[in-house]
């Protein structure tokens, strides 16, 4: 379990990193918190030619208010998010969900940008960003693009990010008082990847409006249950017919089975987590 040999660069500016990344001479793998990449390298599942360490790029570590959004730099660590007053005031879904992401030691290193760029289908962050209708700003040496979370995550470890681009920041709309959020995951041990999980955002309840119901750890990437959202939008929370209809639509999702759960079990658990998360959607401001 020793990584194969690799080259290493540790630029101090974003520009230097992007120049290196755009070079055709060597294949670069950006290194953020390293909580997934380093084990993958030690297991020799990842064998990058060069590690491009982003940890010294100060300009990627910020949390700031920008009008109706909170902007979060790619290198902000989970632990920093949890400590941030801005996050506590404006992104209550993060406050609910972040304690479920791995363990304290991992949250001390793991970054929001790293999780977004990796797109692990079992990770919470892609689902949270979809539920929040967030956007992801990506940069290359020559351009800047803004991609909605809905369009960013394409499949298992697959995103819209090009090989010369880095995640620069995440823009999350601030919550207002009518907004409601829910999060529920079933992990056998606290901090494990879940057997099934869901993140939910709604502009209102009674009736539900603009619901975003996003599952993780059931399919090849964070997946929105659009039909379930449609079945519930405009309906009251005690409308059991609507809820029943919404639950039934979940059987159409594309479940990936793993060693711990078959597709049928994943479907069953998806129903449970959605119901549980819906039953206690909390208010916007924590």
């Amino acid at each position: 379990m020793k990584a194969p040999d690799f080259q290493y660069q540790c630029p101090r500016t974003l520009n230097d990193a992007l120049v290196q990344l755009s070079s055709d001479d060597v294949e670069c793998q950006p290194l953020a918190g390293g909580q997934s990449l380093m084990p993958m390298m030690n297991l020799r599942l990842a064998q990058p030619e060069m590690l491009l360490d982003l940890n010294n790029i100060a300009e990627l570590s910020f949390i700031r208010e920008a009008g109706s959004h909170i902007e979060i730099g790619a290198m902000v660590r989970y632990a920093t998010l949890l400590e941030s007053k801005l996050i506590h005031h404006h992104i209550p879904l993060f406050v609910q969900a972040l304690p479920h992401i791995a363990h304290a030691a991992i949250r001390n290193r793991g970054t929001i940008g790293g999780s977004v760029a990796l797109a692990d289908p079992a990770a919470e962050m892609p689902a949270l960003l979809k539920a929040l209708d967030a956007t992801i700003e990506v940069v290359s040496k020559s351009s800047t693009r803004t991609i909605s979370a809905d369009d960013f995550f394409l499949g298992t470890y697959e995103t819209a990010l090009r090989s010369d681009e880095l995640v620069h920041s995440i823009k999350v709309p601030v919550a207002i008082s009518e907004h409601r959020y829910g999060f529920y995951e079933l992990a056998r041990r606290h901090g494990d990847y879940a057997l099934a999980g869901v993140a939910i955002g709604a502009h209102s309840v009674e009736p539900y409006t603009n619901l975003r119901i996003v599952f993780f750890s059931i399919s090849d990437c964070a997946v929105r249950a659009v039909e379930a959202e449609d079945a519930l939008n405009g309906k009251l929370s005690n409308d059991s017919t609507a809820l029943g209809n919404a639950l039934e639509t979940l059987s159409k999702l594309n479940y990936y089975e793993d060693a711990n759960a078959s597709s049928a079990t994943k479907n069953h658990l998806a129903r449970v987590v959605m119901q549980r998360a819906l039953s206690k959607l909390s208010t916007a401001v924590s």
């Binding site: 079933l186 057997l195 711990n260 078959s262 079990t265 069953h268």
Partner: peptide, 15 residues
């Protein structure tokens, strides 16, 4: 006694 095995014991027709 994993969650899936217990679920299968509970819902043998569905899972």
């Amino acid at each position: 006694m994993t969650p899936e095995r217990i679920l299968k014991a509970l819902y043998p027709d569905k899972l």
